[in-house]
Write a protein that binds this DNA or RNA. Structure first.
Lengths: 103, 103
DNA sequence: ATGGATGATCGTCGATGGGCGATGAAAGGT
DNA sequence: ACCTTTCATCGCCCATCGACGATCATCCAT
C-alpha cells in the first residue's frame, strides 16, 4: 500500500526489519496457524492430512493456512507421492525469533 | 466459529498458548505497529504526536494502531495533561517473546 | 485406462482490517 | 469564556481474511 512516499522523515533504518517482522509475525498471528507450526515442530514433519485431522477445520481452509505459512517462508512442503510433507523452515523460524527478540 | 466439537482429538493442550501467541503476534504483525513498538522502546516512552510525526500516516490511523496495540496489552498510555504518553508494557512484551521462543 | 486417495485451487460469502477526513472531548493557556 | 492543542472516535470506503463446498490436478494402484 502506497509504496511511494518515504523521503520526508529520517526513518530509523528499521524499515526493513519492520516489514520482515510484520510478515513473519503475521504468519503465526492466527490460532490455527500457530497450532500448525506447533504440530509440525512436535513431529518435525507432517503430512497435510494429519494436520487436517487435528484442526476441526475443512481441508480447504487448512490448505489455505498452509499456503500462507509457505508464502511467509515459515514452512516448506515437498511432494511425496500423492501426499505432501510439510516441515518448518528453521532458518525462517530463527529469523522470526531474532526479530522478536531484538524488540 | 463452531466452538462445539473438539472431543475427538487429543489436542496437544497448546490451545491457550496458540490463542495468546496469535493475539500478541497479531499486534506486531503490521509494519506500522512494529515500527511504533520500536519507537517506543527506543525512547522508552513517547507522546502520541511524536509517533504520528514519524509515520507518514494520518493521525487517526496512528491512533487506531495505538488502540490495537493497547487492546493486545502490548502498550499502555497514560494521560499527561492534554497529551498521552505511551510506553511498552514490558510484561506483555516478555510474554510475546516467550511464546515465540517456545516454538 | 480406470479409479481412489490426496491436496491445491476456485468461487462465494460475511466479517474484519486499514486507510482517510471530519467531528468530538478534554486539558491548558490567555 | 474562548480558543488551541492533542488525541480519540465516527462514518465511509475498498481490499483482504477466513471459512466453506465444489471442483481440478496429480499420483499410485489395479
Amino acid at each position: 500500500m502506497t509504496e511511494s512516499e518515504q523521503r520526508a522523515r529520517p526513518v530509523p533504518k528499521s524499515d526493513r526489519a519492520d516489514a520482515e517482522l510484520a510478515q513473519l509475525a503475521w504468519a503465526v498471528a492466527h490460532p490455527a496457524r500457530a497450532r500448525i507450526v506447533r504440530i509440525l515442530l512436535a513431529r518435525s514433519a507432517c503430512v497435510c492430512g494429519e494436520i487436517v485431522d487435528q484442526l476441526t477445520l475443512a481441508q480447504s481452509t487448512v490448505s489455505q493456512h498452509l499456503k500462507i505459512l509457505k508464502e511467509a517462508g515459515l514452512i516448506e512442503g515437498e511432494i511425496e507421492g500423492p501426499k505432501v510433507c510439510y516441515c518448518v523452515n528453521q532458518q525462517a523460524l530463527a529469523r522470526l525469533k531474532a526479530r522478536i527478540e531484538e524488540l
